[in-house]
Design a protein around this nucleic acid. Structure first.
Lengths: 209, 209
DNA sequence: ATAGGTTTTAGACTATCAGTCGTAAACCTC
DNA sequence: GAGGTTTACGACTGATAGTCTAAAACCTAT
């Protein structure tokens, strides 16, 4: 979440092929490391993103025609960076709104959309919001995050009720006033857990009591 | 579904390491093929399973210690074979109940359980049942399949109501009597589609009308 | 200080859907 | 035809999501 929109971190290619197109961060797997270790290493080295709140594997692509020979196999990961973190970025790296992508290198546009879809799904049946939201937040702020990520209106009443019943959210007891223009101060909340927890995967045909 | 239980196809290793342990079917990726083409080729060649109703990627494992050097990377797939298909199997290959696994080779036990979990989740928010059920079936038969796959009781009333409302099921108009012991003949149903369709991924916080 | 505007919060009401149960329907065997 | 078995149907209840209204708590301007 940057500037109240869902954004993805991209870097601009300085070499052929696809010079000038924008690319997802990543790199090669080194001997002796796992895929997750590898993507964390590349993120830290290339774009200084060391604090990824959530990282999960998306899919392994294997089309022989998807690029150069050594790129046939690529395992994609979805990583989420909370809204209040602002990692230092090199010159060629920027955040881009997911629904206004620039010219993307190779199949990275498709991969980005796949990541967005995974995020949408996870938000609905897990506490994945913790990985986008700051430590503490008002319900209105959380609602803005869900609206941006889901792409449709979200009722603040329902959001609060659902997340509270799930036990995903808890009030901090504090309130926060907003500068000029007034309004009742909003209660602050935090996510009870900062690890991914599936809350209701089997909404239908759940086991009887 | 075999003998009214959820079973997985395994073959017995005839070589070290893990001689005598049971292993998931699979093999190496050849140059120029995709992962899905590869797993279909290996299934057809090794265990004569040519009719997989549904095949989806599970996860790519990458632990450097998960086996021999050339096995560090393995992409796992979940394949579902309908209950009425009975592929010819070679000597060393058998179906095994998923909740009574034999001694498994390497990490194949964990992979099997991961596949089972994925199946459980998919059954609840998609029409994945079509890949386990025969072409036509009674509601009782379908209920047996769901019970075996989900591992908990399922109400036939709710199953029918939910799948009909989703539009996943349709009555064939036929009925089928069961041999001796009587009982009202059961109406036959079929799945309206034989391709995977996500039916209700965003059960919560769905867009308002 | 008070009035008016703004934002958040809480509760009531309604609609939808899942879980349970009882009863009728349709078949079998004796 | 009686009794047993399985399936089908509908009513009832409970839980949850969507909507709406009013009150609470703050700001600014007069």
């Amino acid at each position: 979440m940057r500037e109240n929109r869902l954004q993805v971190l991209l870097w601009e290619r300085a070499k052929q092929p696809d010079l000038g197109a924008w690319s997802l961060p990543g790199g090669y797997l080194e001997p002796g490391e796992t895929l997750e270790e590898s993507i964390r290493r590349h993120l830290a080295a290339k774009v200084d993103v060391r604090e990824v709140a959530h990282l999960e594997q998306l899919e392994t692509l294997s089309d022989p025609d998807r690029g150069a020979r050594e790129w046939q196999l690529a395992t994609c990961y979805l990583g989420l960076v909370p809204r209040d973190l602002d990692p230092a970025l090199p010159e060629d790296t920027h955040w881009h709104p997911v629904d206004e992508l620039p010219r993307m290198a190779f199949d990275h546009g498709d991969i980005t959309l796949a990541g967005r879809e995974r995020l949408r799904a996870k938000l609905s049946y897990s506490n994945a919001g913790f990985a986008l939201a700051p430590q503490e937040f008002t319900l209105s702020e959380l609602r803005e995050i869900y609206v941006a990520a889901l792409g449709h209106p979200v009722s603040a009443t329902n959001l609060k009720r659902v997340l509270l019943r799930r036990g995903a959210l808890e009030p901090t007891g504090e309130v926060r006033s907003h500068g000029p223009s007034g309004g009742r101060p909003a209660a602050l909340f935090r996510f009870r857990s900062r690890g991914l927890e599936i809350t209701d995967p089997f909404a239908v045909l759940r086991p009887p009591r």
